[in-house]
Amino acid sequence: MNRIVEATAELISRHGLSATTLDDVVAASGTSKGQVFHYFPGGKDELLLAVAQYEADRVHAGMDERMPELSSWSAWSQWRDQLVGEYDIQGNDCPMTTLVVDLHRAGPGARALIAETAARLQSRIRTGIHQMQAKGLVGAHVDADAIAHSLVAGIHGATLLQLATGTDSHIGSVIDTAIEQLKSTASQRTPVHPT
């Protein structure tokens, strides 16, 4: 079963969902159509949901293994460099890109996995901002939720631009801009309005 899921994921990341056929999956996995339907009796939708889970698990494993706790500026810089480096290595094989670009079409189960994956990254960023606020490194008035949402959207939009254009500056620029904006808030005070 794992061989079928991994082969399907690789085909989708290389060629896209619409260009991946069952015959391609059978050839790439070294299995038969009977084996595919044995493991995935629900057919294509069930297989694609398993692929979406596989890709989501890859994203979660990367976060757990390599994403630092964002409680210092050096940690933010480390995370920025790690993301840029990973994309340079992964390119089209970026699991989050595969999820967002292709597997969102695999039905509500896949979309729920994408939402959960994005929410998990947003939670880590939000927690980091709260820790930085507690240290006085980020202004207390900063809306950590809003920054986390926009940063996740910016990062994933940047990966799509990098994929489409072949340039490698977008992801780093998104995070650098967020870091500079957050740093600038440390000296700002929430305005006091007369009552």
Rank of each mutant, 00 (worst) to 15 (best):
A7F: 08
Y39C: 07
A28I: 07
L49E: 09
S29Y: 02
A56F: 03
A9Q: 10
A28S: 14
K33T: 11
L48P: 10
L22E: 15
T21V: 06
D23H: 06
E46D: 13
E55Q: 14
Q53R: 10
F40M: 00
A52P: 13
G43W: 02
E46P: 09
A9G: 10
V51K: 00
H60D: 15
Y54T: 13
E55K: 14
Q53L: 14
V25I: 14
I12M: 13
V51H: 00
A7L: 07
A9I: 09
G43D: 07
A28C: 12
Y39I: 02
R14P: 10
A27C: 08
V25W: 01
G30I: 10
H15T: 03
Y54E: 12
D57E: 15
K44E: 15
I12Y: 05
V51I: 07
D45Y: 01
A52W: 00
V51T: 09
L22F: 11
Y54D: 07
T20N: 05
E10C: 07
F40S: 04
D24V: 08
S18W: 11
A7T: 07
L47F: 12
G34I: 01
V59G: 01
G30L: 10
K44I: 05
A52T: 12
V36Y: 06
L47K: 05
D23I: 09
A52D: 03
D24C: 06
A50D: 03
G34F: 03
D45C: 02
G16R: 04
S29E: 01
L11R: 00
H38L: 14
L49R: 03
Y54V: 13
A52E: 03
T20F: 08
A52H: 08
G34N: 00
H60C: 13
E10H: 09
L47D: 00
R58P: 11
A7G: 15
D24A: 12
L11A: 12
L22Y: 01
S13H: 03
A19G: 05
L47I: 05
L49F: 14
S13P: 13
K44H: 13
S29G: 14
V36L: 14
L11H: 06
Q53I: 12
F37D: 04
E10D: 15
L17E: 01
T31V: 10
T21F: 13
G43S: 02
K44G: 11
G34L: 00
R14Y: 01
L49W: 05
K44N: 14
V36Q: 03
Y54P: 11
Y54I: 11
S13W: 04
G30E: 13
K33P: 06
G34H: 06
A50E: 03
L17F: 12
D45W: 03
Y54F: 14
I12T: 02
T21H: 12
T31R: 09
P41C: 04
D57L: 09
E55C: 15
V51W: 00
Q53A: 13
F40W: 00
T20R: 09
R58L: 15
R58F: 10
V26A: 01
S13Y: 06
S29P: 15
L17W: 11
A56C: 08
S29N: 06
L47A: 11
A7K: 02
G43I: 06
G42E: 05
T20Q: 09
A56Y: 04
R14V: 06
L22D: 10
H15P: 07
A27D: 14
H60G: 08
V51M: 05
E55R: 13
F37A: 05
Y54L: 10
A9F: 04
A27S: 04
G30F: 11
H15K: 06
H60N: 12
G16Q: 09
